[in-house]
Simulated assay, not measured.
Amino acid sequence: MTHTSQLDGSDMALRITSATSKVGVVLVAVVLGFALGFFAMFLLGPTAGALTLLAVTVATVVFCGRTFRAEDEPTAPPRPAWRLTGGTTSSVVMAGFFILQGLSTVLALAAGDDGAAVAVVSALVYAALAAAYVLSAVAQRAGRLRAQHPGGVG
């Protein structure tokens, strides 16, 4: 289900809670990313295609982090900027995905794939995305532990 919530009396914020809608958004982003990447590649070359695909990936992560909500997560308040998913497990899975993306980019470079500069930029962006999801998981876990043990040392 897709929800909108009132933020300041005039602004409506999109919140996506349905798993089906989330999958649909991600699939559209993947298709759009590849289409725009191929289009840029044919017009401007492989570097432009790779950078276009990378830009769509980052835009998708930002969009999903701001709009996707877990079933038990409130839809009304905006998430803190550091929180990218509804739960720790989702953050860990996404971090693993971006680690694998970065490793595959590095392996393609090591295998002699042309475009070393793009591969390095891509690997760094994927590493930054993975780090952001790890920080999201750690912060969510710490918040959950503080909520379970209020008044604890730390």
Results as ranks from 00 to 15, higher is better:
125 V>P: 08
116 A>P: 05
129 L>E: 09
16 I>H: 06
89 T>I: 14
123 A>I: 12
32 L>E: 00
48 A>L: 10
29 A>T: 10
42 F>A: 09
94 M>H: 10
34 F>H: 06
117 A>K: 07
45 G>Q: 05
126 Y>I: 01
13 A>P: 00
40 A>M: 15
76 A>F: 01
3 H>W: 14
85 T>F: 04
98 F>R: 00
34 F>C: 10
19 A>Y: 04
82 W>T: 12
54 L>T: 08
53 L>M: 15
79 R>S: 09
16 I>E: 05
105 T>D: 02
132 A>G: 11
8 D>K: 11
80 P>V: 10
109 L>S: 12
97 F>R: 04
114 D>I: 00
51 L>S: 07
25 V>T: 12
96 G>T: 08
56 V>A: 06
74 P>K: 03
153 V>P: 02
23 V>L: 13
112 G>V: 06
122 S>F: 00
83 R>G: 01
48 A>R: 03
18 S>C: 14
44 L>R: 13
106 V>S: 02
15 R>E: 04
30 V>N: 04
37 G>C: 06
100 L>K: 02
142 A>R: 15
91 S>H: 04
84 L>F: 10
145 L>F: 11
17 T>Y: 02
62 V>G: 00
109 L>T: 05
25 V>Y: 14
58 V>R: 08
68 F>A: 09
105 T>Y: 00
10 S>M: 08
81 A>T: 06
94 M>Q: 11
4 T>C: 08
78 P>W: 03
69 R>L: 02
49 G>L: 07
80 P>C: 00
14 L>C: 04
146 R>I: 07
73 E>W: 00
5 S>C: 12
149 H>L: 12
71 E>W: 07
30 V>G: 02
121 V>N: 03
27 L>S: 12
38 F>P: 00
130 A>T: 06
101 Q>R: 08
85 T>L: 03
48 A>H: 07
118 V>M: 11
35 A>V: 15
9 G>E: 05
13 A>D: 08
144 R>T: 15
7 L>T: 14
39 F>V: 13
152 G>H: 09
76 A>N: 11
38 F>C: 02
147 A>E: 11
41 M>K: 13
141 R>E: 10
129 L>C: 09
37 G>D: 01
82 W>I: 09
88 T>R: 14
99 I>Y: 09
99 I>H: 04
114 D>L: 04
103 L>V: 12
43 L>R: 15
9 G>S: 12
64 C>T: 15
104 S>D: 10
70 A>M: 01
93 V>Y: 11
138 V>E: 07
120 V>Y: 05
86 G>N: 08
130 A>I: 02
98 F>Y: 15
75 T>F: 08
57 T>D: 13
74 P>L: 04
6 Q>Y: 03
25 V>W: 12
33 G>M: 05
95 A>N: 06
81 A>P: 13
147 A>G: 03
19 A>E: 10
78 P>Y: 01
121 V>H: 03
139 A>Q: 14
25 V>L: 12
